[in-house]
Design a protein around this nucleic acid. Structure first.
Lengths: 126, 126
DNA sequence: CCTTTGTGCAACTCTGTGGTTGCACTTTAT
DNA sequence: ATAAAGTGCAACCACAGAGTTGCACAAAGG
């Protein structure tokens, strides 16, 4: 079942299994923030299914201006989800989904906290 | 290793394994949006580690006003991550992390797309 | 060389959101 | 009954984000 990025059932490079809960503000902010916009998720999916593309091409498939799409791409790029490569006079954007592991990491840590809380409740004298 | 919510290695109630990529706008927007704020993630973690609490109590542990905290709690609640219960004159907030499964669902779907793309590249004649 | 196509930059508008303050209302306690 | 503690609502401000338009600059192509 594929091998691309390391966030499958097995490993999920969870950063700091303990000492978590420190919120790790910086990265997760921009990451979750980038994913919070449907247009941006759409762009990511498009780039994954149809392969790398330029801002102008992507703009043609949306009701948005090239500039608007460009801004979205830049948001995604600063979140680490994209990178670009200049070809001739065009700039081709490509998905680099490694940061997603961080998101899953936080979520799984949170899920663990929840589980621990449940356990604690279970251990209470009825 | 606990049982709380169903997003562990095994199942991850992935909604629509195919037909994904439809972006499912609504819910994921508010969900990722809610998680995009460090204060809100902090509040979730606090509520999980120290158990349910009121807005006023939570406000004491932050540099924020009760009103600000209140707004954050409401954002989290409309994202489905919290619910509240009125006790006497107080309102107690509690974490309900089930929606997190949706977030992981999208991420895993995206990871799958990535994997498929890798596979496609591998199958190309060198 | 001149036209086309694509990108880069900047200014501007509009709306949403984080945060505040102020006050009214309800519940508990003295 | 009255004071204290807690919540609810509304107005307000400041700033960031989404989106637009306009124009200048770089690369291909005739």
């Amino acid at each position: 079942m594929a091998t691309g990025i390391a966030l499958h059932r097995a490993g999920v490079s969870r950063p700091s299994t303990r000492a978590a809960v420190t919120t790790d503000s910086g990265a997760l902010d921009t990451l979750f923030g980038a994913l919070a916009d449907p247009t941006r998720r759409l762009l990511v999916e498009r780039l994954l299914t149809k392969g790398p593309a330029t801002a102008t091409v992507l703009a043609e498939t949306t009701p948005l201006t090239r500039q608007a799409v460009l801004k979205h791409l830049q948001v995604l790029e600063t979140a680490g989800l994209l990178d670009h490569e200049r070809v001739g006079r065009e700039v081709r954007y490509r998905v680099t989904p490694q940061p997603l592991a961080a998101a899953v990491g936080w979520i799984l840590d949170t899920a663990d906290l929840w589980d621990k809380r449940i356990d604690r409740l279970r251990r209470l004298p009825t």
